[in-house]
Design a binder for these strands. Structure first.
Lengths: 201, 201
DNA sequence: TCCGCCATTGTGGATATCCGCAAAACGCGG
DNA sequence: CCGCGTTTTGCGGATATCCACAATGGCGGA
C-alpha cells in the first residue's frame, strides 16, 4: 500500500481530524483547502485516493471530480458530505466514485473505507502497468508485423498468410519470430492469451 | 429488447401509473403488491428489470433485493423511493443496484432509465449464454482431455505433454483432436482465445 | 452378454513450423 | 555517405503437427 489519501476540504478542522484519524491507521495523507489549489498541484501519477468535500467555496467537490475524470485521474474517490442528497450521491457513484459518506460518520467505518480505496488504487495501478507494458510492446511492432500478427491470431497457416500478403512463407516465418520476440512470448497460444487477457484494442 | 419491467410496490396507484408510463414507451410490465408475492412467483429465467419500492408493508425493497441477490437474480434493479436516505442509496448501488430514484421524478427520465436497465439485462443475458455454452463444452471433456488441454494452453509441445503424462505422442494427438472437436475450435490459438475471453475458471 | 465410450498405441505419409546462414534492396537519420 | 532497420527471399535440415486406418483392453449400462 504505497498511496496516500488526498484530502480536499475548505474546513481546516475537518482536514486536521481526517489526517489525524488516517495517521492513526497508518495512512499518510496530504490536504488542500480548495478544489482549485488541488488542481494546481494535480499530477497524473499521484497514487492513493481522493477524499472530497461536496460543498466548498469556489469549485465544488463534484465539479472537481468531473474535472479529474476528464484529466484521466483513476484514483478512487470518496465523497464526504454534510449536505448531500440522493440524486447527487447516485450520480457520483454512477460516474465511478468509490464511496459517498455522510458526516458525521463513524471514524472506524471511514478509515476502513479509505483503506479499501487505497487497496483498489494499488490493484488498478498494477493492472494498468501490465496493460501499458503490453501496449508498449504492441507499439514496437512494425506495420508489417501487425499485419502478420492479426492473421496469426486469426489462426491462419503461414502458407495462407503468405498468399494473403503476397510474400514468401519464409518471410512470414521471419516476421512471426520477430513478433514473438518483441511481444516476449514463445508461441501463438501465449500471444493469444496475452492479448485476450485485458481490455486491449 | 425482450424483457419486461417487474414492478413491486404496495401502492396500487404507483403500480398503475408506472405500467401506463412504460406502456407508452413500448415497455411491457407486470406488477406485484408486495415483496413476498413477488418472491412466490420469482423464477431464475425472468427477463427484464426490477423496479422496487423501498418502503413496503412486510418485506422491504432492500430486503427483497438482498434475497434476490442470494438467489442469483441478475436483473438490473432500480429502486424508487420517496423516503430514502444517502447510506441506503449508496449501499444499494455498491451491492450492484442499477439505479436509485427519488419520487416524484420526471416521467421521461424514469422511462429512459428503465429502458437502459432492460438493455443491460439483454446484454448480460447474451454474455451469460455465451459463457454457459463454453462451460457446457468444458464439462463434456473427459478428465484426461482436461489434463491435456491445460498443457496445450501452457504452450507445451505434444512430445513434452506425452512425457509428462507418460503416454504416447499419438495419444496426445488423439486427445488434442477430440478437445478441439468438443470445444468447437480449429486450433490452439482459437482455444486460448475462447477460454481467455470471459470470466471462466 | 453386448455395445458404446474412453484411453491407449502403432504405422506411414503429408503438411506445418522453425531456423541458421546468406543475400539484396530500400528508406531514414546522423 | 554510411550504418541500421525493415522487408524480402532461398536453401537445407530438423522438428512438430495432423490424421486415416487399425487394434486392444477396461468399464458401465441396458
Amino acid at each position: 500500500m504505497t498511496g496516500i489519501a488526498h484530502i480536499v476540504d475548505d474546513d481546516a478542522a475537518i482536514r486536521d481530524a481526517l489526517a489525524w484519524l488516517l495517521r492513526s491507521r497508518g495512512v499518510d495523507s496530504r490536504a488542500w483547502n480548495s478544489a482549485e489549489s488541488f488542481l494546481v498541484d494535480y499530477l497524473p501519477d499521484m497514487k492513493g485516493c481522493l477524499i472530497l468535500d461536496i460543498r466548498m467555496t469556489g469549485m465544488s467537490g463534484p465539479e472537481l471530480f468531473d474535472r479529474l475524470l476528464a484529466l484521466g485521474c483513476t484514483m478512487p474517490t470518496l465523497f464526504l458530505t454534510g449536505h448531500g442528497d440522493i440524486p447527487l450521491a447516485v450520480n457520483a457513484l454512477k460516474k465511478g466514485a468509490f464511496d459517498f459518506i455522510e458526516k458525521p460518520c463513524n471514524d472506524n467505518d471511514l478509515a476502513t473505507r479509505v483503506i479499501a480505496a487505497l487497496q483498489l488504487d494499488c490493484q488498478q495501478r498494477s493492472q494498468a502497468a501490465s496493460t501499458a507494458s503490453i501496449e508498449t510492446r504492441l507499439r514496437n511492432l512494425t506495420s508489417r508485423e501487425h499485419e502478420v500478427m492479426e492473421r496469426i491470431l486469426a489462426g491462419q497457416y503461414n502458407k495462407v498468410i503468405a498468399a494473403d500478403l503476397n510474400i514468401a512463407m519464409r518471410t512470414v516465418e521471419v516476421h512471426r519470430a520477430r513478433i514473438f520476440e518483441k511481444m516476449n512470448v514463445r508461441s501463438a497460444v501465449e500471444l493469444a492469451q496475452l492479448l485476450s487477457s485485458g481490455q486491449l484494442p
